[in-house]
């Protein structure tokens, strides 16, 4: 992805997003994979946070087939999704502050992210790509003592968040460079398709986990943080609070985790035909709505699997609208605050 800027002095006059440099024909590939073979492709849609993509696809497949998922698997899925959210926010800390020259935050947060990746490695066998959530449940149960390790990591990260606050949110440069920059018009936000933290940064309380709950989010107690202003600062405040909410969710999940099976076995994947039909499932990722439209013609492969990423709207139509008038040095910071993720556009 590339943004072509037309400038007068240091001020952006016109911005045009040009995409395609990362296009790998994922959706075409999915049409030639059976329903289980899709998963090694799916996680590659988004490197920092692959689990919501797996979850969205699995939910769509389960919805077409009417397949039930065991209760324990639902809790484990929420645990994985929230850990992925935190890991992704740790990268965001680095990207957002790094775009303003504050590199230390990123060095700390990416270091701390590794503790979450350690947990993923133990649970799923992979640090970055997991292929852990799949139709019918999750691939395997939590290893013994895993819950305690997660809680220990949560305690550590919660303590570190105060350090990030001192280093990033109390920093005069960060405040000056983010307040009043990259403003999204609250009146237009929903209509323009803004989702996730950028929408909540406009003061609009919207979260798919609450509005259109999936898995067991309706049984958990958590807040949806919002902030006023619609600028980078507001979006950063929202994300800062969301990490704390994720920690809260993870603790509840481990507390309420039922016992039982984690996987309702699907038929032999080589012969597994889904009934005719289609479904659209959506998930709240760190960037906002991730959705999957999946259509089945009753065959071994998806007839169509089409992903909707938040960046598809944020980094094209929205970015082109809010960049004019901004200073050229703020462009990368605005881009980061919108969660622009090229693989979501160039699928």
């Amino acid at each position: 992805m590339m943004i072509r800027l037309k400038v007068t002095g240091d001020t952006v006059v016109k911005a045009t997003t040009e995409v395609g440099y990362l296009h790998r024909a994922f959706e075409k590939l999915l049409e030639k994979r059976n329903w289980m073979q899709c998963f090694p492709v799916l996680c590659r849609f988004c490197v920092p946070e692959p689990d919501p993509v797996e979850e969205a696809f699995a939910l769509a497949v389960e919805s077409i087939e009417g397949r039930e998922v065991p209760e324990r698997a639902k809790y484990i899925r929420v645990l994985v999704l929230e850990l992925a959210r935190m890991a992704s926010y740790m990268l965001w800390y680095g990207g957002q502050s790094g775009s303003l020259g504050l590199y230390t935050v990123g060095q700390w947060s990416v270091g701390d992210r590794n503790y979450i990746l350690d947990l993923f490695e133990e649970l799923t066998g992979g640090r970055v790509y997991h292929m852990y959530i799949w139709p019918g449940g999750v691939r395997r149960d939590m290893p013994e003592g895993f819950g305690e390790k997660v809680l220990k990591t949560m305690d550590y990260i919660e303590k570190r968040l105060d350090d990030y606050d001192d280093l990033m949110f109390e920093n005069a440069i960060f405040k000056r460079r983010t307040k009043g920059v990259g403003i999204i018009d609250k009146e237009k936000a929903v209509e323009w398709g803004v989702v996730g933290p950028p929408l909540r940064g406009c003061g609009i309380k919207s979260d798919i986990r609450i509005d259109d709950p999936y898995e067991v989010y309706d049984k958990l107690d958590f807040d949806v943080p919002t902030a006023e202003g619609g600028d980078i600062w507001a979006r950063a405040l929202v994300r800062r609070q969301e990490v704390r909410q994720s920690i809260r969710i993870v603790r509840q999940v481990l507390d309420k985790m039922p016992s039982g099976s984690v996987y309702n076995k699907v038929p032999n994947p080589q012969k597994w035909r889904l009934p005719e039909g289609d479904a659209y499932s959506r998930i709240e990722s760190v960037r906002g709505e991730i959705g999957f439209y999946v259509a089945s013609d009753g065959g071994l492969y998806p007839r169509r699997a089409h992903m909707r990423g938040a960046a598809y709207v944020h980094a094209v139509t929205l970015l082109e609208r809010i960049l004019p008038g901004e200073n050229i040095s703020d462009v990368s910071s605005i881009l980061n605050s919108l969660g622009a993720c090229p693989p979501e556009i160039e699928r």
Partner: peptide, 10 residues
């Protein structure tokens, strides 16, 4: 108010 997605099936 919110357009979630537009898709096409051949």
């Amino acid at each position: 108010k919110h357009l979630s997605h537009i898709s096409c099936v051949d």
